[in-house]
Amino acid sequence: MSVVDKADAAARARVRVERPATRWVPAVRSAAGEALPFIASFVLLAASWEAMALWLHSPLVPDLSAILREFLVIGESGKAFREIWVTFYRMGLGFLLAVVLAFPIGIASAVSRKAERFFEPGVILGLTVPGLVWALLCVIWFGVSIVSPVIAVALGVLPSMVITVQQGVRSLSADIVEMTRVFRLKRTTVLRRIWIPLLYASTISGARVGFSIAWKVIVLVEIFGMSNGVGYQLNSQFSLQSVEGVIAWTLAFWLAMMAVEYLVFRPIEKNASHWKKSAYE
């Protein structure tokens, strides 16, 4: 053990002694500090809505109790869960298709200049075309089958996923690639030990963005061509001129997306990028 390490260990030991006995106090304080802005924004939003509803007194701006009532109706009957599941199922399939296509295209355009030039116009086209166009075209071409939402979502998500994969591959430094030569690693080892961890970490945040794009496309497909799903429900509430219905469905879907974010994406991201974390955080 070097002199430096010893000094370091001594410093750490000193810190341990000076730590206060009530260790939970700062923890509670920091948790409250994190939750407070969140609660404040939520309360302010609800209060201003309620004030607006009271002031305008119009069926176009229903008050909070009407929205809550509608929300409980769709929740209690189980309808919200069924419809959100249908929508998630379609989104998930389309999203998976996009990911499966994005890997070869993204890797090819990262390693080859020719492939990049070949795919670039398509990627830019995909980024510029609004999700609405994919939704309309797919409903026209594939009708009311499951193919429509899957293809439309895949087309909507693909360009941003391709860019994510491409940038992930490019983020590997030449130094690291050289080390695989110095240690004469086999191709399969390079794939397993270098490429997969790197792509796993770098594409997961792109996947979150992709998933929110997928939602924006699926809702349109369901409005135009489906007879169930959250988009269809939004559209039928719209035709009933039920503002509270539209808001209740939006809220329900927002909650579902929050659940996916906190139960699926955050844990995966934490797992994928745990090596980036510093010990001193």
């Binding site: 130094d175 690291i176 080390m179 030990r193 961890p197 970490a201």
Partner: peptide
């Protein structure tokens, strides 16, 4: 064997 100025460890391992 070769050692560089940078440690060049694989960051995710």
């Amino acid at each position: 064997g070769m050692l560089f100025q940078e440690h060049r460890l694989f960051p995710w391992l």
